[in-house]
Nucleic acid binder design. Sequence first.
DNA 1: ACGCTGATGAAG
DNA 2: TTCATCAGCGTT
Length: 207
Amino acid sequence: MSALPSRLERAFYARHTVEVARDLLGKVLVRVGPDGPVLCRIVETEAYHGHEDRASHASRGRTPRTAPMFGPPGLAYVYQIYGMYFCLNAVTGPEGFPSAALIRAVEPLPGAAFGPRDGAGPGKLCRLLGINRELNTTDLVAGEALWVGDDGYAVPPEAVLAGPRIGVDYAGDWVETPWRFWVGSSRSVSRARRSTASAAGQDPGAS
DNA sequence: ACGCTGATGAAG
DNA sequence: TTCATCAGCGTT
């Protein structure tokens, strides 16, 4: 039923990372690997914004690892965490300003060859799609191996929920910042809906 | 609640 | 060179 997805352009990623993270919900993540293309729908994201955001890798400035976050919007920032997993981010905002949207969960499209929990987490989806450090700094706007498209589907605004980001207990005043976004009706989000979850409003989270 | 696992960055 | 710290996951 869905049209073939059309690739998101650089202007999509060039906006405030909170807007990008929210708008990535419902978009189609396309991975073209050795075994051919795999498509899935993004249902959970998180925003990381600038050096003041103590949850962000870039909060301590530019380092070899975080350099991609300072690059042009639309790059992939892939890093390894806990020694065993990879996480995929899309670099956002203007070039030179460190911000990115973490893709935390994807759900299968109808007829997909994997289950609803196979992409339910940032490490799981990278494992599912064969995303590793080789894809770090690849261009989601121009590359062939990994990109994000729009197939015309839109998540109903009332289905978009927001809450605190996961795994950032060290982030001080930023721990409760509600920059995690997910599709409340999806079975593929990485954790059950929190009672404190709230519908994502129009306002950007903070600044 | 815990173990797995190794890159990362800061300290020295 | 050592050391503590992780934007997770799976099993108990």
